[in-house]
Structure formats: C-alpha cells, structure tokens
Design a protein around this nucleic acid. Sequence first.
DNA 1: CGCAATATCTCGATGGTCGAGATTATTGAC
DNA 2: GTCAATAATCTCGACCATCGAGATATTGCG
Lengths: 175, 175
Amino acid sequence: MDDQDPGLQLVHLLRAVTVELDLFAAEFAGRNGLHPTDVRALIHLLDARRENLRATPGWLGSQLGVNSASTTALVDRLERLGLVRRERDTGDRRRVLLVVRDEAITLGWSFFGPLIDEMVTEMRSFDERELATVRRFLLAMRDIAAARRAHDRDSGGSARQKADQPGERQEDQGN
Amino acid sequence: MDDQDPGLQLVHLLRAVTVELDLFAAEFAGRNGLHPTDVRALIHLLDARRENLRATPGWLGSQLGVNSASTTALVDRLERLGLVRRERDTGDRRRVLLVVRDEAITLGWSFFGPLIDEMVTEMRSFDERELATVRRFLLAMRDIAAARRAHDRDSGGSARQKADQPGERQEDQGN
DNA sequence: CGCAATATCTCGATGGTCGAGATTATTGAC
DNA sequence: GTCAATAATCTCGACCATCGAGATATTGCG
C-alpha cells in the first residue's frame, strides 16, 4: 500500500471531509448552547421526520450509541430547548414518541441549509455519469464502515460492550 | 430543491458516511477506554507525523476546536495511556512537542488499518477517470464546509465565540 | 530593564455520560 | 385472572471531560 496510492489518498480525503463536517457541527453546537451530541440527535430526528419514521428515545439512543440514562438526559435537554415534544404512544404505552417541533426544523435549516444549498449547487457541475460514480463511491464507503462496525462489535468482546443497545431497530410502521 | 434532486441525495449520503465513521470511531474509543475526543486527537497526531509536521498542544487544540484547559487534560490522558510523550522544544522553551509513541501507531493501525485496507481495495474497482471524479467531489465538499465554517465564524458573532483559538497554524518548519 | 505577546498549565465549577436499578407497560403461560 | 419474563423509559449517584478565568514561564522588542 504505497503512500502514493490514489485510493489511499481518497480515503484520507474522505476523512478530511468528515473532520470538516464535525467541526461545522461543533460550531453550530457551541453557538446555540447545544452539545455535539444534541446536534447529532437533531440530525437523526430531522432525518426520521423526513422519512416518516417514528422516533423514540430508545431508537435515538441506539442511533447515537449512548445508553438509556444519557438518552433520557438528552431528550430532557431537547425538550427544555423547545426542539422536541414527548408524546405517549397510544398503541404501546411503554413507548414515548419524539415529535420534532417546528423550532427544530427552523434552527436546523438556518444553520445547515446554506451549507447543503452550496453543496447541492456544486453538484450541478457533475453530469449524470459522474453523479453515479460518486454515488457508487459513497455507498461503498458507507457499507464498508457499517459492516466493519458490526463485525468488530461481535468479534471484539474482549473489552466492555459499551452501552445497553436494544439492537432492535424499528422501521416505518405505517405512520 | 426537490427531494428527488440527485445532488441532494448525494449530500445526504455523504452525511450518512460521516455518521458511520463517527460511530466507528466511538466504538474504537469505548473499547480502549478513550473518549471520542482522544480518538480525534490521535488521528490528527498520526496525520501530523505522517506529514512531518510538528505537533504541539496549542496546534492540537486548534485542530480539535477545544480550549487550552481541555487540551492540557487531553494531552495528560494521552500521555498517561502511553500514546504520546511531552518534549520541551529546545528552540522555544515555551513550547511542548507532542511525540507520538509507537504504541499509538500500533493501536491506531490495529483498529483503522483493516477499515482503510478494505476501502483502498474497493477503490481499485474505480478507473482513473472515476477516481478523478471522486477526488473532485471530495475536494469540493471539503472546501465548501471549510469556507462556510470560516464565514460563519466571522459573521455570526451574535453568540459566544466558543474557545480561545490562537488561529495560528504552524506548517512544517523544516523538522 | 519594562512590557506585550505567546504557549502551556492550574483551579474551581458546570454538566454530559455511565452503570445499576426502579418504574410502568406488554406479552405469554398456566 | 395471575404470575413471571420482557421491554421501554426514567431516576439516582459517581465520574470526569470541558469550560472560563487566571497563573506561570518564555520570547522579543525597545
């Protein structure tokens, strides 16, 4: 694996992008009195809403990799900030549904909107075949990372298992 | 900006990749008794070493966006774990050089090595023109994020300025 | 020398995260 | 129906990463 390997250079470049995006999120967090975890939670909640998935504390915790105690505190913060609302699930009353309030959408868009806009605009300079290439690249990188994470979680039981993950991920249950 | 906009889909996909990579790093952290910040620091330190840059606490703190107090504690942790060594700069004795110990390289490679390997291997399925397309994409995304971050830092003085960033970034000073 | 700028570190306070366990609701067996 | 097992969320106490403010040491300028 030569240091001049173009593939390796691209992997490093991908990491540089993630570093930039993390710093961008941290900037957003610090500016609004949120913590990095809150921002990550907000992103997942907005994603869930966009895809019509039901968000619950347990689901959110598993997405973020934090345990139930931290998730409760996290939702408390988001609720106190007026970004989400707790709502008992009428079907399964053990559950709590996390309803994203309009304030959260406004806040998220005010910060990430311009960034996303610029990125989408930049993508217009890519023709269809190039877009397909980028998509293939991103899908491959995402899947490799996800697969290795699942692999390491199983095989690497030497150290502690980190958190109490239900492991269960509920998909869209018909709204 | 339609929800079916292929550019927008790719931006979301890019975010999905960063989420996976962050979770991967968190997994690594939890398994080795490190904190997410420690992992980020380790990555920057290994990068600096690879590029023959001099790492100091101040430089590291500015890279991570944390203040000097946190940086001191961070370096204390890394030193206690035997990953780095503090060494007074003989030229400017206010400075401390952070020397990455072999243990850090071994540790980092043991975890990120296989992931990087798989990614690099996957990149072999891209021909030269496709690699160039991916590179153009990643460079554009990185630069947009960096530019917006700089832009927001200046204009958005409404809230607090977060940390005491020297703003100074020392490049390779001839080793 | 005095003085400002720079680099790092110290201190006390805040609060996010964790493990363990409590609480409430659901499910299935008898 | 009752009981135990499971599940989803929350409470509690402890730990420690991060922060702001300020201390300490060094450099460079005049």
